[in-house]
Amino acid sequence: MSDNIAELSVKVNVVDIAETIRGLKAIQREAKKATQALRDLEAAQNERGLTYEQRLEAAGSIDLRDNHRIVTHANGFQSIVPIDPTKLFKATRKEVSE
């Protein structure tokens, strides 16, 4: 066997690492704030007793069910585009039997 010992020298710029960690922590803080805001929004909507479909209708959302086409862009991304943008979402109404 060979008695050669490999040597590895690494130079690390501590300032760059510290700045990177600070940046990642800032992103994490913003993600936590956004997650909490989403939870608060969902809780507020649920308090009003609206279903998901009712919230879509109330927001005036376009109904994409059987009303969409997929557009492929030159960069490889795809978009879902409504065929009729005036077709709005209507929540299905379930009648309560008495």
Rank of each mutant, 00 (worst) to 15 (best):
A34K: 07
L88F: 10
I27A: 12
I70E: 13
V12F: 14
N75E: 00
E57A: 11
S97A: 12
L8N: 02
V15N: 10
A58V: 01
D63R: 01
A37N: 06
V14R: 09
G23M: 04
F89S: 03
L50D: 11
A26L: 11
K32I: 13
F77K: 09
E57P: 03
L41F: 11
E19V: 02
L8P: 00
A26D: 10
V81T: 12
E7C: 02
H73E: 13
A44M: 05
E95Q: 09
R55G: 01
I21L: 13
G60D: 07
I5F: 12
N13T: 03
A58C: 08
K11C: 03
Q28E: 15
Q36P: 00
R55I: 15
V96K: 11
Q78V: 14
I83Y: 04
I80G: 01
Q45S: 08
E53Q: 13
V12M: 11
H68K: 10
N46V: 02
G49W: 12
R55H: 02
V96R: 12
D84S: 05
L38N: 08
A18W: 03
I17L: 14
S97I: 14
V81M: 09
V12S: 00
A34M: 07
A91G: 06
I27T: 09
S61G: 01
T86Q: 14
H68F: 15
A74Y: 03
N46Y: 02
K11H: 08
T51Q: 03
E47M: 10
V12L: 15
I70V: 15
G60Q: 05
K32N: 14
N4F: 14
P85C: 06
M1D: 11
A31M: 14
Q36Y: 09
G23Y: 07
A59L: 15
G76W: 07
H73V: 00
L50F: 15
H68V: 04
S61Q: 10
K32F: 12
N67F: 08
A58D: 13
F77Y: 08
S9Y: 09
A31W: 07
D40A: 11
L64E: 00
A59K: 07
S61V: 02
T35N: 06
T72A: 12
R55P: 02
R69M: 15
A18F: 09
R48W: 10
A43C: 01
V12K: 00
R93G: 05
D63L: 05
G60I: 05
T20W: 08
I62K: 01
A91H: 09
L24K: 06
S2Q: 10
D66I: 02
L41S: 06
N46H: 08
G76P: 01
V15F: 13
M1G: 15
V96N: 11
A59R: 13
E42C: 04
S2P: 08
D40L: 11
R22I: 05
P85H: 04
R55Y: 04
L38R: 13
T92W: 05
A91W: 09
S97Y: 11
L41T: 09
A26Y: 06
G76A: 03
R48D: 13
H73S: 02
S61W: 11
V81W: 04
I80Y: 01
P82L: 06
I21W: 05
A44G: 05
E57M: 04
S2G: 08
I62L: 03
T86C: 02
T92Q: 13
I62D: 03
I70Y: 03
I70C: 00
S79E: 12
H68N: 14
A37G: 04
K33I: 12
E47L: 13
M1N: 06
E98Q: 07
